[in-house]
Write a protein that binds this DNA or RNA. Structure first.
Lengths: 389, 389
DNA sequence: ACCTGACCTGAATCACACC
DNA sequence: AGGTGTGATTCAGGTCAGG
């Protein structure tokens, strides 16, 4: 397999562009001037690049998921798992060795003031972060990608795995890394951008499909995520390197944002799809580059947050407006009526024998004057604090 | 077993309860029955506790590298790349050794089905997560505490560090850990709780002050955060251990929520402040804390018992809710569909060509009005008779 | 054109009691 | 202790067909 990846390379030159490996920057593949996709093993390709030649690296390495068995949704449909060969490692030690090897090679090609982003999940991100630190990278932030629409936990055995983690690190502690603070703040209603980013998954038209209409790549990232990475920590004209290029999202975003890129990918099918994808991208007019706003928070408020903040205390007895029914607040934000436990809505429906009930308007607390006040009034106070109306 | 929890203090031990190290559980310090604060080094105290005696551990370990002079010698630290900055490697190695030592000691005192939470930031959480995995803990989720009111980044050189990371891990991959899924969902608008939690910092009256009005402890965590941890992954009466007790937030929340706790703290001033703080806590009313039976835990009912009791008679034809499939009840409680005979679940799956099927909710009978009613409703009547809801 | 509802899908470490 | 059978469990958002 490995030989086929670079079998066309000349002796002593394992680095080759998918197409037109010219010696000067060109754009015959439509990737943008100075940009290219290189087919091959990422460590070998990195080792063949000149040292200190890259401004920023974005890496989406294998996560080393350790899936035990098939998973079905409650409707019995099968979850399309990431079970590709490239994500299989024998042990944590094997994964660590792989991680240290590519990080070390990546560090060599970074300019002295360069920086690196890596994305991962709890399966691998701790290994990556530890390796980074051991190799002398200097962590600047860990950033949370909060998924707007994550896959639920179908068996109800854990919290919804609703985020992934990115680590942003400079080459070393002395590096004068790029951070476009003012532009980010200006695009964020004049508030500093936080370390938690709320961005939807890559779905719909943005998701690349194969000939049969199936997803081309199992882990394609949303362009909005990469755009925020590049806009925050690179400049126009910078060279961005992605050692696990996959479907080429980094290249697509880099081209659109006026950055150059080097994408390394060992699967020829992915590399070809990426090339075709990126060729269709039109760079944005320079004037328009740095505008993004953070997504609005979902205005949903959990009853449990009222309990957490002490607006309603556990043990409080709620009633309806005519004091016909009662229920007791539990510390987890559920309600109890006799032996029944459930949400404010479920228990509201249950005590009335109704199909459904809006618990926010149904249930009331006694205010200081002995008058009843709906819990919805308390929710409004939380929303005010959140800045959401 | 419970008496042995506090029967190990001997003269010469550095393990000592702050007050009243009695041989039986007591509450002379007002901490709640079975709860206590132990003064001493966390590893030594952990080693003196009986094995497999703790349900849940919550740990907020130090990450300040200056604390390392008190750390233990490196045990199995990995010697790796030769070009690393030696000083830095040394300090990380010392932190790793400390982390592995306390995690190993913590694992010993956990019950087989116990679990552990650790909180940290990008300075230390990767080291902790790696050590956890290497020691055989099984990560269940990483959870993001999104701070409602984080400290801004004053110099404008990074993203606002607006979150901290918690790792929730069971003692090992086989552990049947506690997760109060239904109650959490009920308190969250009937939507399962995600891995990102939005909670304010500990400020105002909740923040403990010293005599001069300065904050008593530099990293006091909000009670709301700990409450969500304990409510999600422990039961009333469980023993919660906090090896870095500090200002005693874990104890305060545990007492309020009807859990027992063991707090280990090496600073007598913190331990004393924690004790005083916790003594003032009133546990919530028992009515709001009662454990309840979830659908998973409800006693099994055999379909044959419905037939035996005449709730369904042999020969009845069952259908699904859309009357697409039929099957006939046999006197032994099995179903027959054509030539196939099997359980309500097996036949339900078979007629649909599905992997699995919950026969209780799939199959229906015609009630007196000619409407369909799931056989699960009949099971509920049996469970009522049994006194279980 | 617009609405409704059925159907599909996403980096997932997703049982457990009983014999 | 290993094999077997029961039976509990999903959210947001997109597409697409049909009215």
């Amino acid at each position: 397999m490995r030989s086929s990846l670079n079998g066309t390379a000349r002796s002593g030159d394992r680095v080759r562009a998918v197409r037109s490996p010219s010696l000067v920057p060109s754009d015959s593949a439509g990737l943008g001037f100075g940009s290219r996709i290189v087919l091959g093993d990422c460590i070998q390709v990195l080792d063949a690049l000149p040292p200190a030649s890259v401004d920023l690296i974005f890496a989406d390495p294998p996560y080393n998921l350790q899936l035990q068995r098939a998973l079905h949704r409650p409707d019995d449909s099968l979850v399309d798992a990431v079970d590709d060969d490239w994500d299989q490692f024998e042990s944590f030690a094997a994964y660590d060795a792989f991680t240290r090897a590519w990080l070390k090679a990546a560090k060599r090609v970074l300019k002295p003031d360069g920086a690196l982003w890596v994305i991962g999940s709890y399966h691998n991100i701790f290994r990556v972060g530890t390796a980074l630190q051991d190799l002398g990278f200097w962590v600047l932030n860990d950033v949370i990608w909060r998924k707007a629409n994550p896959m639920p936990n179908f068996r109800g055995r854990r919290f919804t795995n609703a985020h992934e983690t990115l680590i942003w690190a400079s080459r070393d502690a002395k590096a004068r890394y790029t951070f476009n603070y003012e532009a980010l703040k200006a695009g964020n209603e004049d508030v500093q951008v936080r370390s938690d980013w709320f961005i939807p998954l890559c779905t719909g038209d943005e998701r690349l499909k194969d000939g049969a209409g199936r997803k081309l790549h199992p882990t394609q990232k949303p362009e909005a995520l990469i755009a925020r990475v590049l806009l925050s920590s690179s400049k126009t004209g910078d060279v961005i390197l992605d050692p696990f290029f996959g479907s080429g999202t980094t290249g697509a975003v880099a081209k659109r944002l006026g950055r150059r890129f080097i994408g390394i990918e060992r699967d020829p099918a992915y590399a070809a799809a990426a090339e075709a994808r990126i060729a269709l991208i039109d760079p944005l007019p320079e004037a328009s580059l740095a505008n993004f706003t953070t997504a609005r928070e979902a205005p949903r408020v959990a009853f449990s947050s009222l309990v957490e903040r002490g607006l309603v205390t556990a043990g409080t007895v709620l009633t309806d407006d005519k004091r016909r029914y009662v229920a007791t607040v539990r510390p987890d934000g559920s309600l109890m009526s006799g032996p029944q436990v459930g949400s404010i809505h479920k228990i509201g429906a249950l005590v009335q024998g109704a199909q459904a009930c809006n618990g926010w308007t149904f249930w009331h607390v006694n205010d200081n004057n002995g008058r009843l006040s709906p819990i919805d009034a308390l929710r409004a106070r939380i929303r005010e604090e959140m800045g959401v109306l």
